[in-house]
Design a protein around this nucleic acid. Structure first.
Length: 198
DNA sequence: ACCGGGATGTTCT
DNA sequence: GAACATCCCGGTG
């Protein structure tokens, strides 16, 4: 890791609701193989009454990971060509998760560039939920992967950078239902935030 | 810079 | 058949 030592997250880190986990996840580092990036933009989904959540209509084959144990990666495929990655949180069976929307690239930039031929600059490599999955090579094969380092090839670690004291917030991007809820969180001014901002 | 449309396939009605 | 937690490219100003 470029900055400081990578430490696993404390046990129980993910066992809280998405609205609480989302800002806490900012500035943690997502690692896959030799590639990593700092989490700088996320959105909370789920809970009892979130009509924008995949879990809203109940458990199906597609969203079943979202109802699983906290600390798993929920990956789904959308728009016929993009993957999106979420961190499952809360209690098992609850169906709540945090969508990873953007990373600041840290390591493995050459590998990211090779996978993201359309990116016109390094800031664009992981600037969006579909883009970051492409940059890291995350697809449905990783749906249900455990995010504890060493267990699955993909992990979230702490390199010593704390979350921002005052995260930016806004409405969630790309949805129609409950789009007004300020459940998007980001690191103000961070390189690589997603372009589409409300 | 901003905006509009097309790509592409899985999932659910 | 329609919707979709998106992205990219080509238009215009």
């Amino acid at each position: 890791m470029s900055a400081g030592r990578a430490a696993p997250l404390p046990a129980g880190f993910y066992r809280r609701d998405a609205l609480a986990l989302a800002p806490a996840l900012l500035n943690k580092v997502l690692v896959k193989g030799n590639v990593s990036g700092r989490i700088v933009e996320v959105e909370a989904y789920g809970g009892a009454d979130d009509p924008a959540s995949h879990a809203f209509g109940g458990r199906t084959a597609r969203n079943s990971t979202m109802f699983g144990r906290a600390g798993l990666l929920y990956v789904y495929f959308t728009y016929g060509m993009h993957h999106c990655a979420n961190v499952v949180c809360g209690d098992e069976g609850e169906g709540t998760a945090v969508l990873l929307r953007a990373l600041t690239p840290l390591d493995g930039l050459d590998e990211m560039r090779a996978r993201r031929l359309a990116a016109r600059s390094d800031r664009e490599l992981c600037a969006g939920p579909g883009r970051l999955c492409q940059a890291l090579g995350i697809d449905r094969l990783l749906d249900g992967a455990d995010l504890v380092p060493g267990s699955s090839g993909v992990a979230v670690v702490d390199d010593g950078t704390p979350p921002p004291a005052q995260p930016g917030t806004s409405g969630r991007v790309g949805i129609t239902a409950a789009a007004d809820r300020p459940w998007r969180f980001f690191v103000p001014g961070a390189p690589g935030l997603s372009r589409r901002s409300p």
